[in-house]
Computed example of a mutant assay.
Amino acid sequence: MTEEINRLKEELKRKTEELESFVYIVSHDVKAPLRAINNLVEWIDEDLNGTTGDVRENFDLLKNRVKRIENMMNALTELSRVRRMELDMAEVNTGAMIAEILEMIPDSKKMKVETGKMPVFRTMHSKLYKVLYALIENAVVFHDKEDGHIRISCKEKEDCYVFSVKDNGPGIPEDLQGKVFTVFYTVNSKDVRETTGVGLTLAKKILDFVGGNIQLISKQGEGSEFIFTWPKELNVTN
Rank of each mutant, 00 (worst) to 15 (best):
residue 100 E to D: 12
residue 96 A to F: 03
residue 89 M to N: 09
residue 89 M to R: 14
residue 82 V to S: 13
residue 90 A to W: 07
residue 77 T to K: 12
residue 65 R to T: 08
residue 81 R to V: 05
residue 80 S to H: 06
residue 70 E to V: 11
residue 85 M to Y: 07
residue 68 R to S: 06
residue 85 M to A: 10
residue 74 N to Q: 10
residue 73 M to Q: 09
residue 98 I to E: 01
residue 86 E to N: 11
residue 72 M to H: 05
residue 82 V to H: 06
residue 90 A to M: 10
residue 76 L to Q: 03
residue 89 M to V: 13
residue 97 M to K: 10
residue 76 L to A: 15
residue 73 M to A: 15
residue 61 L to H: 15
residue 77 T to H: 11
residue 81 R to F: 04
residue 101 I to H: 03
residue 73 M to Y: 02
residue 68 R to V: 05
residue 75 A to Y: 05
residue 71 N to L: 04
residue 84 R to K: 10
residue 101 I to P: 01
residue 82 V to P: 00
residue 66 V to C: 03
residue 93 N to C: 05
residue 94 T to S: 09
residue 77 T to C: 11
residue 62 L to Q: 04
residue 71 N to R: 13
residue 63 K to D: 06
residue 64 N to P: 01
residue 88 D to E: 07
residue 87 L to I: 09
residue 75 A to D: 06
residue 67 K to A: 10
residue 72 M to N: 11
residue 102 L to E: 03
residue 75 A to G: 11
residue 85 M to C: 09
residue 102 L to V: 07
residue 91 E to L: 15
residue 59 F to Y: 13
residue 66 V to N: 00
residue 61 L to E: 07
residue 64 N to E: 12
residue 93 N to E: 01
residue 92 V to I: 09
residue 89 M to S: 14
residue 81 R to G: 11
residue 59 F to G: 08
residue 71 N to A: 14
residue 102 L to F: 03
residue 62 L to C: 04
residue 84 R to A: 12
residue 96 A to K: 08
residue 102 L to P: 00
residue 80 S to Q: 06
residue 100 E to M: 11
residue 82 V to T: 10
residue 75 A to N: 01
residue 67 K to I: 01
residue 98 I to W: 00
residue 66 V to G: 02
residue 61 L to K: 15
residue 80 S to G: 09
residue 102 L to R: 06
residue 97 M to Y: 12
residue 74 N to I: 05
residue 65 R to I: 03
residue 88 D to F: 07
residue 88 D to K: 15
residue 65 R to C: 06
residue 65 R to L: 08
residue 66 V to A: 02
residue 87 L to W: 09
residue 92 V to E: 00
residue 89 M to G: 11
residue 101 I to Y: 03
residue 102 L to I: 03
residue 74 N to S: 08
residue 59 F to K: 13
